[in-house]
Design a protein around this nucleic acid. Structure first.
Lengths: 211, 211
DNA sequence: GTCTATACGCCGATAGAC
DNA sequence: GTCTATCGGCGTATAGAC
C-alpha cells in the first residue's frame, strides 16, 4: 500500500502553492508511516523516532512542524480514515436504493480494504482507540457507523430485515463480517479476504434477513 | 466483583502454611487490582503505582516480592483467566454430549461472565494482548479456544453444523456472540447481558446450523 | 522480609544554532 | 525554516535501610 487507501487518498488540493503541496505531502508521509507502525505495534509501542524514520524525515523535531503532539497525529489519522469511510458509505447509499444492496456493497468495501489496505482494517477493528485517544468518539458513535445504523433501520422498516433492535442487528451482521476479517488479519485463514466475501455475506445477511 | 470470577477463583490451597496463604492472597489482590485497571485503562495507561494503590500495598517495591516485572503480572493474569476458561469448557464438555448443547452452555458462560465479571470479558475481547505480551499465545491459539474448535468440528461431523471450514464457523458463531457482548460492555445496550442471551444464541446457532 | 529512597532509561517535547 | 542537541518527567526496577 502506497497511500492511505486508494479512492481513500484525500487528494483534492487543487491549485495551491508549491510549498503547501509539499507540506501536505509530508503530512501524508507521516500519517502513512504512523498507520503502518500502529498496525504493526500499536500506539504505545510506536515512538516518534519510529515515525520519523519510517516517514523519511531527518529528525523528530521535523514532525513538530506538522503535528504538535503524538496524540494529534493519531487523531488526524483516525479522523482521516473515518472521513474516507463516511464518504464511501455516502457514495454507496447514493448508488443503491435497497438496504440489502447497500449492505452488500459495504461488506464488499470492507473485504477489499482487508486485502488492499489491511493496516486500515487493523486500525479500525483491532486497535483500541479509546486507550490513546480518550477524547475521540468511539467507532460506534462516529458518523460512518451512524449511517450504517440508519441503513439497518431502513431495512427493518421495509421488512427486508427482521424486526429486532437495530443495535442487535448491527452486532449480528457485522459480528460475522468483522470476526471473519479479524481471522484473516490474524493470518488464520489461507486465502485472500476476497475469497471469503460471498460466503460471509450470505451468512451475515442470513442472520438478520426476514425469511 | 470481589474475586477473579467465581468458580473462577482458583482457591485450592488446602493445608499449606499460613505464610503461603497470605502470600497467595496478596498475589490474588495484585491480580485482581490489575484486572480492574487493565479493563478500565489498558496495560500502558496502568502504572505499577496504580496497581500498588488499588491492591492496598504500601509500596511499589512490595509488588516485586511477588512478580519480577509488570509484564509478568499481565502474563500471570492472562494465563489464570485462560486456565479458568479451559477448565470451565472441559466441565461443559463432560456434562453435555451434543455439540449444540456444549455450545449453548459456553454461550451461557460468556453471557453470565459479562454480567458478573465484565472485566474478564473486557480483557478477553477488548484488550489487545499482543501489544503488551508479544510472547504469549494469542487467544485463538490457546487451549481453551482449541477446545471450542474441536466442538465445532464435532458438530460438522455429526451433521448438526453445516459443512464449512471450522474457522469460518467459529468466526460466524462467535462473531455474533462476541460483538453483542462488546456492545453490552460498551454500554450501548440497556439491559443486562442475560436479557440478550437467548435471542443472540438463536441468531448465532442459526448462522452455522444445518437446516 | 518489608518499605523508602533512588537510580536509570526512554520518550515526548523544545529551545536555539545554523 | 529546518535540524541538533538537550531537557524534563514519568515509570520501571533496585539497592539498601530498618
Amino acid at each position: 500500500m502506497q497511500s492511505i487507501g486508494h479512492e481513500w487518498t484525500i487528494n483534492e488540493m487543487g491549485k495551491e502553492q508549491e510549498k503547501d503541496q509539499k507540506k501536505s505531502a509530508i503530512q501524508d508521509d507521516i500519517l502513512l508511516a504512523t498507520l503502518q507502525l500502529f498496525a504493526e505495534k500499536g500506539y504505545f509501542n510506536t515512538s516518534l523516532t519510529d515515525i520519523q524514520e519510517r516517514s523519511g524525515l531527518k529528525s523528530t523535531g521535523a514532525i513538530y512542524q506538522h503535528y504538535k503532539t503524538k496524540q494529534l497525529i493519531a487523531a488526524a489519522l483516525y479522523n482521516k480514515i473515518l472521513d474516507s469511510l463516511s464518504i464511501s458509505i455516502d457514495d454507496i447509499r447514493r448508488r443503491n436504493k435497497k438496504p440489502v444492496d447497500q449492505l452488500r456493497e459495504i461488506v464488499g468495501l470492507f473485504f477489499s480494504l482487508t486485502d488492499q489496505a489491511p493496516e486500515i482494517m487493523r486500525l479500525l477493528l483491532v486497535l483500541q482507540i479509546r486507550e490513546f485517544l480518550p477524547e475521540e468518539k468511539p467507532l460506534l458513535e462516529t458518523a460512518a457507523l451512524q449511517k450504517i445504523y440508519k441503513i439497518l433501520q431502513a431495512g427493518i422498516r421495509t421488512g427486508e430485515v427482521r424486526a429486532i433492535d437495530h443495535q442487535l442487528a448491527y452486532a449480528q451482521f457485522f459480528g460475522i463480517i468483522f470476526q471473519t476479517i479479524r481471522l484473516i488479519l490474524a493470518g488464520m485463514l489461507e486465502k485472500q479476504a476476497e475469497a471469503y466475501q460471498s460466503e460471509t455475506w450470505t451468512a451475515a445477511w442470513g442472520a438478520i434477513a426476514k425469511k
